[in-house]
Amino acid sequence: MPNAFAKIGASLILAVLPLFLLAQTPQELFELGTRAYRQSDYKSAAAYFEESAQKGFGAAAYHNAANSYAKMSQNGLAMLNYERARYLKPRSPETVANISALSKVSGTPEKKRSFADVFFGELSNFEWAMLAISSFWIGIIISSTCVIFRKKGNFAKISLLLSSLAFIISIAGTIYWSDMRNTAISVSQDGVLKLSPAKNAPAIAPFPEGRRGIIKERRGNYLRLQTPDKKIGWASLENVKPLR
Rank of each mutant, 00 (worst) to 15 (best):
S170M: 12
L80V: 13
I175D: 05
S143W: 03
A10M: 10
V187F: 05
L17P: 02
Q74M: 15
A10D: 09
H63R: 09
A235F: 11
T183M: 05
A23H: 14
Y176P: 02
F57Q: 09
F167R: 06
A184Q: 00
S143M: 10
Q189F: 09
R84F: 04
G173D: 05
T34A: 14
I99R: 06
L21K: 12
Y222C: 07
M72C: 11
K55A: 06
E51A: 12
S11Q: 11
F155A: 11
R150Q: 15
K230T: 14
E217H: 12
G153P: 05
K89N: 15
E94S: 14
A156K: 08
T183S: 06
F20M: 10
A97N: 14
F207R: 04
F207V: 13
Q189R: 14
Q226H: 10
S186K: 06
K216H: 09
N64I: 00
L223V: 06
L32F: 13
A184Y: 03
L243K: 07
S236Y: 07
K230Q: 15
K199Y: 11
I204W: 00
E217D: 12
G9Q: 11
K104C: 10
L80M: 08
Q74R: 15
R91W: 13
S164M: 08
R113K: 15
L32H: 10
D229R: 11
Q24E: 15
G213H: 04
I140Q: 06
S135V: 06
L17H: 07
S40M: 14
A46Y: 07
I215L: 00
S159H: 00
G56N: 10
T25R: 03
W137N: 03
S236R: 00
F57A: 06
T145A: 13
I204K: 02
M180W: 13
A59S: 15
S68A: 14
L225T: 08
A65R: 02
M180E: 09
A61V: 07
P242Y: 02
T145C: 09
T34E: 13
G33D: 01
K71M: 15
N239Q: 11
I185S: 03
K199I: 09
S188W: 01
S159V: 02
G220Y: 07
L21G: 12
Y62G: 04
A45I: 11
N221Q: 10
K199W: 07
A47L: 14
Y69E: 06
A61C: 06
A70P: 06
G107M: 14
A23W: 15
N67C: 12
G153M: 08
N75H: 14
L29H: 02
Y222M: 03
I171R: 01
S100R: 15
I141V: 13
F155W: 10
R224G: 05
A70S: 13
N182Q: 07
T145P: 00
T108H: 01
G191W: 02
K152A: 14
S73Y: 04
T108K: 02
I204F: 01
S135P: 01
S52W: 04
S170R: 01
V96F: 08
K71D: 01
R181G: 07
